[in-house]
Every structure is written in structure tokens, then in C-alpha cells.
Design a protein around this nucleic acid. Structure first.
Lengths: 191, 191
DNA sequence: TCGCTCATGTAACATGTTACATGATTGG
DNA sequence: CCAATCATGTAACATGTTACATGAGCGA
């Protein structure tokens, strides 16, 4: 049985902790999980059903009072083996489409002052993301120190991806500010 | 009539030059157009038909000997207006899913030496991309110099996106090498 | 009272990928 | 001789998004 990337993403979360479908969706929305994309529950619930049918995860219903029952999923030994195999398989290289970059590429056609607005908006968003990542990074380094690179716990994964998050956002915010400065210069010129 | 991001991407290419469906696909595959994603002709041809039906582009058939005729599309005045409007509209912020980052997040479960291979592969690919971008950047700066930031030609768009390409790949390659060094260290330890 | 969180799902739609059909020319 | 390039498309499938259904509790 074929497993989609979303399927493996779910398995990788369940390797850290057992979760309900609702939890999986919430985990993927957390800022430090930026690389998961934000899958909707309408995609997650059917995917969980498929993974269970394939025997990679199991579920138990936990009854609750006042709120709906939770169906909590856990990774099976088969699921863990399957995940481990995927981890060392070659990963396809895919360059994603970026709507803002397509616009940047056409900025010679636009009014600088008007175009500037959305770049400023993205700058604000990514500055805040950078801030969040840097804070979490500092906390993690304080707790674990240079051991992080040698750990065999989920912290090691967090360390690798958070470092990427900080680097990515720092570089992106730098570029956004550079574009904004150029657009301001052009706006002044075009008056 | 609603236009998809792919539709606008096509319009933005046709604002620079008239192209056939085949040309559009080829343009989107060129390395300096990394942010367009790589749309397939099976998506491009129907999209071109829709854009023409909406009156945003027009087409003329050019007969050729020895090879199939070309249908060349050009942006109409309506299409240009529509594109210009889109350029200054707010752009949704979307964090894309990254398969390699999901794997990095789970690397505490994997054998370091085995996992290393694909990171090395990605490092090779992105090093080459960086090289291509830097070469093109150097050429562009030699031809146009600091005027680039003030130009009202497609060169301005190229300048903005190429700068992003260089920054992105430089930071990504740096991170990949850092991960590889850590995995090598762990591989030696685990022996 | 209004909207948010918790909780699980279905239906319809939009977008993107893979495979196929057709066929001449060109380069290794 | 084989594969790639040029050139336009269709069909089937996979993936992702938006909207809806249901309903209790909780805080402003």
C-alpha cells in the first residue's frame, strides 16, 4: 500500500506522541512545524483511516464528558518500520511556486507605492515568525546546550528544523526589507 | 471570470514576450524562474484556452514546415490591465510543505550514515543552482550596474528575483552542509 | 449573545501529476 | 538506430481547499 507525503508526515508526528485527528491538525499549525504545510481536517481524517486500514496505526476511543469523544491514534511497530524506511529513501527535489516572487518578477509593470504594501505585510509576518523561532531556539539551547547535535530524542529533530527556520526567515526578511527600500526609492522618484 | 495563480503566472510571462504553450512550459522550467514551479503542458494548454476565452490573451497560428504549427499567444490590453491589478492585490501567505524538512524532523529515528546520502544529494543540486544564479547575477550587474534598481524594464523583475534566488540557495546550502557535518559526526560515533 | 475551542467527519470543487496519442526532424 | 526536441492536446488520477453538518462548553 502506497503512502502519500501527508501520510508519512502524520506517521512522523505519531512517532513522537499519540494524537487524535484534531491534534494532528493543531500540531501542523504550530509555528515551529512550518515545513508540514497546513493540512485541513478534511484531508487528515480520511488519511488516518487509510493508515489504520494499512495497519500502520491503531486507534482507541476515549470518552469525554461535555465534549465529543476523541479517537486517539498510535503508531504500530509496522508503522514505525515503514516510517524508518521512508526516512532514508531519496527525496524528490521540488521547487515550490511563490506568488509573491511571481509578482516581484513583474514589478516593472506596477506602481511602486501601491506594490509596496503587500511586501510590508509579508515583512511583518515573517519578522514575527523569525522572532518566535529565535525565542524557541534560545530556550532549547539553554536547556540542552551543545548536546543537541548528539541526542537520540525528538529534540534533535526540533534542533535541525528550527535552525533551518531561523536561517530561512532571517534571509527572507532581509530580502523583503531590501525590496521595500528599493520600492520606496522608486516611489519617491515617481512621486 | 476568476483567474488562478497559474493563470497570472502565464500572463506575467506574456507581458514580457508572446509565447506558445510549449514556450510557456519551457520558460517555467528555466533555472532563474524557480519561483514559477514547473507546470506541465497538460495544465498549461487548458489554462491558455480559458485565458483566451476570457479575452485576456489572443492567439495566432504560425505555420511551420517539418514540425507542428505553433499557436502563439499575446497579452491583450484587457489582460495587461488585469495583470496590473493583481500585482498590487494582497498576496496570501502560504508556507509550503517540505519533504526533506519533515525527514530532518524525524532524523532521531534514522541511521545517520544512511540518512546522510539524500542530504548530500540535495546539497549538490542546490550548490549548482546557486552557481547558476550567481553567474547570471554577475552578468546582469556587469551589463546594467546599479541602474538595475531604477529600471522600468523586465530586467528590474529579474534583478529582484535573482537576488532572492542567490540569498535563498546560499542559506539553504549552508544549512544542508551543517546537517551533513552533524550526521557525519553521529555516523562516526555510532560506527 | 457572539464567537471561539473542542471534536469528527462528508461533499464539492480546484489544482497538480502521470500517462498517453501523434509524428517529423535532428544529433550522437 | 535511438533518444531528444518540437508541438498540441486529452484522460485518469492524486492532492489540496472550501464549505457544510452537528453540538456542547466557555469567556468577553
Amino acid at each position: 500500500m502506497y503512502i502519500s507525503v501527508l501520510g508519512y508526515a502524520i506517521l512522523s508526528l505519531l512517532a513522537r506522541a499519540s494524537l487524535s485527528g484534531y491534534d494532528v491538525a493543531r500540531e501542523m499549525k504550530r509555528p515551529h512545524a512550518f515545513f508540514y504545510g497546513q493540512a485541513q481536517t478534511s484531508q487528515i481524517y480520511p488519511e488516518l483511516a487509510r493508515l489504520q486500514e494499512a495497519g500502520l496505526i491503531s486507534s482507541t476511543v476515549i470518552e469525554q464528558q461535555g465534549r465529543p469523544d476523541r479517537r486517539v491514534y498510535a503508531l504500530t511497530p509496522t508503522g514505525l518500520r515503514r516510517l524508518r524506511r521512508w526516512l532514508v529513501e531519496p527525496t524528490p527535489i521540488a521547487e515550490a511556486r511563490s506568488e509573491l516572487l511571481i509578482k516581484a518578477h513583474s514589478l516593472w509593470l506596477a506602481d511602486a507605492a501601491e506594490a509596496l504594501v503587500q511586501f510590508a505585510e509579508h515583512e511583518r509576518y515573517h519578522s514575527r515568525q523569525l522572532d518566535v523561532y529565535e525565542t524557541q531556539m534560545a530556550e532549547m539551547e539553554q536547556h540542552f546546550g551543545p548536546e543537541l547535535a548528539l541526542m537520540d530524542s525528538p529534540r534533535f529533530g526540533d534542533y535541525l528544523t528550527l535552525t533551518r527556520g531561523v536561517g530561512y526567515e532571517r534571509e527572507y526578511v532581509g530580502w523583503l526589507r531590501w525590496v521595500i527600500a528599493i520600492l520606496e526609492q522608486r516611489a519617491r522618484r515617481d512621486g
